[in-house]
Design a protein around this nucleic acid. Structure first.
Length: 878
RNA sequence: GGGUUGUUAGCUCAGUUGGUUUAGAGCAUUACCUUGACAGGGUAGGGGUCACUGGUUCGACUCCAGUACAACCCA
């Protein structure tokens, strides 16, 4: 059945061909049926984003999992979709409009949203199209978007429900304020950077004195104008005399108390801390404890407000420069020191964050978090690797209320409607809000214009946390057929950096709204970094374009390249040599098939003994590999599973089996061996398919008569029968022997084509002749003979306690031979010594398990025998 | 400052209840093979006192404590 196939494997055309075929056959689509479901929801990428290396890794892993699940007979469903990414997308749209000369504040909310939707429609599908190139077997008919109708309705419904249950509240809190975007940010959206700054020492006059001062150290002298106390540690004896006194704030001469709080570190700065409750999170907490006045001296854009009294309207950084000479002139500046501190920056606008008091919507988390913590603690939800449980627990136990409002337009607008008196109602729609408002006011004629909806939108994660539920919802929320079938999902594949943003919150939402977990297993991938350990990012320009990589190495090559080096949770240091390895393997698989494909089959010749033995051994080896892979998959050790099939194909199948059964040049192969090798190849391809879907499909289609609509992706995962471990172990000795022969050939310059003779002098346990046929073939041996004694003038080597001799033309270098044997002897003696020492220890023999002691005794016997033989042979040579 | 995790070959990493011939893989490197599937190959080799110091144990890369260094998370 020789077919014409190309010498070189061309991934591009073959990958496009099979992806189209799978799509036409609708293999990726899933509908509920009687099979066990296997569900993954994609971590939705940013709708206006493009594919980066992190997505490649993450989605390759998901594809591997879902493809294997289908082959195991499960109803595999991988739901794709995108996320509206409120702040990131809005920032991009604002930038784009600015380039067109349009300022955001010149537009109405509706006009701006029109631009945002236009942008979304233009860029929204790009990333999903890119995933197709990778081979992702997503159920595209289920593609969801966090801002489509169904998902939006779900978000709003949830907000109203949480409000009605008392979890949502409006509060004035210290938030991370982005003065450029003029919005609050969550803690997770702030990036702290080490920065060189100054520590300013400023003295405050003690009230009622003319020469007593207390000196504080601060990095932000411009906030002095908002000071409402000076704080010392109660244990600090240097300041006990000041307790209860008051001091005057420099420049504005406000009288403020000296308070005592253990928060102050005695050995930092002067041991005195100025307290500005409006502009520092810790100061705010202290302010609450000591009932301090709060003076907000900043405007929303970061300039100083009327309340500052001085420098009104000046930007905060300009104010810092200007206030120093003012303090100096007033005689309050003591000294300035260089200082390194960490400053928070906005992840999106890159300006320093201003801690600011602001009215925001919050979600009370403490009660909601309880079942979510329990689920992970009890391993109801499993983390891979498990070390992330610690991180999760730490966060959950110290959980803070979640600030869910954002001062943006792009997102789900908060369904809160204010009345003219400042009171409000919360409802899913304006109409329902109106009803509530009419009841509330007792005025059935209340007009719609009397209601004003909250201007803010919800944090994006307030939609993402519903994702495992909302992707299965229908227009009619009562239609729960899909949700009932696919939920809880099975596996979530994501990055550890969003364990709080997303994973924890999904678990919370799952328990609150479905009463059960959203997924059973969470697989944390690493971060893809470059060789210098920098995270790969577009802004750094250190990331290759994934599509270029696919074009160059093939999707299969890229997938394998990434997985080869990525144990769960470990960062991967990406280098093109990895994808190069992937491509190398692709070529190896192709050439192995090309070899088999090129053989003429002759039904009249019987199966040679070496082929019969080789096949028998390989079947045992393959069974071992299947069991090992299943075990690796079970433990989510995907790269180990890949390494197993990689080694089985490259080393065992191509390196050993094919060499064994390969007919002589231009000779046909017997029909039995041919059929058998196709059979094992078929299994190997199936085991390979989750990792390399394209080449496995291409070859599988060529190895038999396939009907239209057939595909390896719908084939069954191979099952192992009890492997013959004894056989595969015995074969390892054969490998050692063949390697020994190859070494001698190399050492003595004997060409592989040249036939040689092999003489065997067995040790006490004798020589197993079972595999002689294979040894003869692979070693190109013309004569194989077991003897009782030394062969003169021959190269030799040992495997275990058996000596092998190969006569050759030329002189034996006796001196070199002696040297080599002496080295081997020394090694064995050293080894024996450690074993004997161990066995000589009564405590060891007494307390170690019998099995372990037995193994040690066998080591001893083996080493002693080998030493004996080596000594005899050395004596004979000398 | 608090927490978490790590430190094994030149590099990136395995090492799965402490014992499996005195530590494994890939890459890189060295030598040979322009072989009849595969030079994007093949064959054979070199390379490690498992960060350091103690402790537990008959036995420690593995468990415990401390030290040094690194990364990440939180403030």
């Amino acid at each position: 059945m020789t077919r014409e196939i190309p010498v070189k494997y061309d991934p591009t055309t073959i990958e496009d061909k099979w992806y189209s075929y799978w799509m036409e056959q609708n293999f990726f689509h899933s509908e509920p049926d009687e099979r066990e479901p296997y569900t993954i929801v994609i971590p939705p990428p940013n709708v206006t984003g493009v594919l980066h290396m992190g997505h490649m890794l993450n989605n390759t892993i998901q594809d591997v999992l879902v493809r294997r699940a289908r082959m195991l007979g499960k109803n595999g469903c991988w739901v794709p979709g995108t996320d509206h990414a409120s702040i990131a997308t809005e920032a991009k749209v604002v930038d784009k409009l600015l380039k067109e000369g349009i300022r955001k504040d010149s537009l109405t909310r509706d006009q701006f949203l029109e631009h945002a939707w236009e942008w979304t429609h233009k860029h929204g599908g790009i990333i999903l199209e890119q995933l197709k190139k990778l081979g992702a077997s997503c159920d595209w008919q289920r593609t969801a978007f966090t801002m489509d109708e169904i998902r939006s309705a779900s978000v709003i419904r949830t907000f109203v429900d949480l409000y009605n249950k008392g979890y949502v509240y409006r509060g004035v809190r210290m938030v991370n304020w982005d003065p450029a975007a003029k919005t609050a940010l969550s803690d997770e959206e702030v990036i702290y950077r080490e920065e060189q700054s100054k520590l300013y020492y400023v003295r405050y006059l003690v009230e009622g004195t003319t020469d007593q001062y207390i000196t504080v150290a601060t990095t932000r002298p411009e906030t002095i104008l908002g000071d409402t106390a000076v704080c010392v540690n109660p244990a600090d004896e240097r300041f006990t005399h000041l307790a209860g006194k008051r001091v005057l704030v420099p420049l504005v001469n406000r009288s403020v108390p000296v308070i005592q709080d253990e928060y102050v570190e005695m050995d930092f700065g002067t041991g005195c801390l100025k307290i500005t409750p409006a502009h520092d999170t810790n100061d705010y907490e202290i302010g609450i404890r000591h009932n301090l006045e709060v003076i907000d001296t900043f405007n929303d854009d970061g300039t100083l407000s009327e309340k500052a009294q001085l420098l009104v309207g000046v930007d905060r950084f300009e104010a810092r420069k200007l206030i120093i000479p003012m303090l100096e002139a007033a005689g309050n500046l003591v000294k300035i020191e260089d200082y390194n501190n960490k400053v928070g920056y906005s992840e999106r606008t890159h300006v320093p964050i201003e801690p600011k008091l602001s009215a925001q919507w919050f979600l009370r988390m403490t009660d909601l978090a309880k079942p979510a913590l329990e689920a992970v603690e009890s391993d109801t939800i499993r983390f891979y690797p498990a070390k992330f449980k610690n991180l999760y627990r730490h966060w959950m136990e110290n959980i803070k209320d979640w600030c869910i409002s954002r001062q943006l337009w792009w997102g789900h607008r908060i369904p809160v409607y204010y009345l003219s008196d400042g009171s409000f109602v919360v409802a899913e729609t304006e109409e329902k809000a109106m009803e509530l408002a009419r009841v509330k006011t007792g005025n059935p004629a209340l007009a719609f214009t009397a209601l004003r909806q909250d201007e803010d939108v919800l944090d994006t994660w307030a939609s993402s946390w519903l994702w495992p539920i909302s992707v299965f919802e229908k227009e009619d929320p009562a239609d729960t057929r899909d949700l009932d079938y696919y939920y809880p999902t099975n596996d979530l594949v994501t990055a550890p950096e969003i364990i709080f943003f997303w994973v924890a919150r999904m678990v919370i939402a799952g328990y609150e709204y479905k009463g059960t977990l959203p997924f059973r297993n969470v697989y944390f991938t690493g971060i893809v970094r470059d060789k210098l350990r920098r995270k790969m990012s577009k802004s750094l320009g250190n990331s290759p374009d994934p599509l270029d990589l696919i074009a160059k190495y093939g999707a299969d090559g890229v997938r394998v390249g990434m997985l080869l080096c990525s144990p769960a949770g470990n960062d991967i240091l990406f280098d093109e040599s990895l994808t190069d390895q992937g491509r190398g393997f692709l070529t190896k698989v192709w050439n192995s098939f090309r070899l088999i494909n090129g053989w003429e089959v002759d039904a009249s010749i019987p199966q040679p003994e070496h082929s019969r033995l080789g096949m028998e051994w390989f079947r045992a080896k393959l069974d071992e590999a299947i069991l090992l892979m299943d075990d690796h998959f079970e433990k989510y050790r995907l790269n180990d599973a890949l390494l197993t099939i990689h080694a089985t194909i490259r080393d065992e199948f191509s390196g050993w089996l094919l060499e064994i059964i390969k007919p002589a040049y231009q000779q046909p192969i017997d029909a039995k061996s041919h059929a058998e090798v196709i059979e094992v190849l078929d299994k190997l391809l199936k085991l390979l398919h989750p990792f390399m879907p394209f080449i496995s499909e291409e070859i599988w289609q060529l190895t038999g008569e396939r009907k239209a609509g057939e595909s390896i992706m719908m084939a069954s995962w191979p099952k192992a029968t009890a492997p013959d471990h004894e056989l595969s172990e015995k074969f390892e000795v054969v490998k050692e022997l063949v390697s020994g022969i190859r070494s001698i050939r190399k050492e003595k310059n004997i060409a592989s084509k040249e036939e040689i003779e092999l003489y065997i002098v067995p040790g006490e346990k004798g020589y197993v002749a079972e595999f002689n046929a294979i040894v003869e073939k692979l070693g190109n041996i013309s004569k194989l003979e077991v003897r009782a004694d030394e062969v003169e003038g021959a190269a030799n080597f040992m495997v275990k306690a058996t000596a092998f001799y190969i006569p050759f033309a030329g002189n034996v270098d006796v001196a070199a031979e002696i040297l080599r044997m002496e080295e081997e002897l020394a090694y064995n003696k050293g080894f024996l010594e450690t074993v004997v020492k161990k066995l000589g220890n009564e405590k060891f023999v007494g307390s170690a398990p019998a099995k372990v002691v037995e193994i040690e005794r066998k080591k001893q016997a083996d080493a002693e025998e080998k030493i004996k033989i080596l000594e005899e042979r050395l004596a004979a040579l000398k």
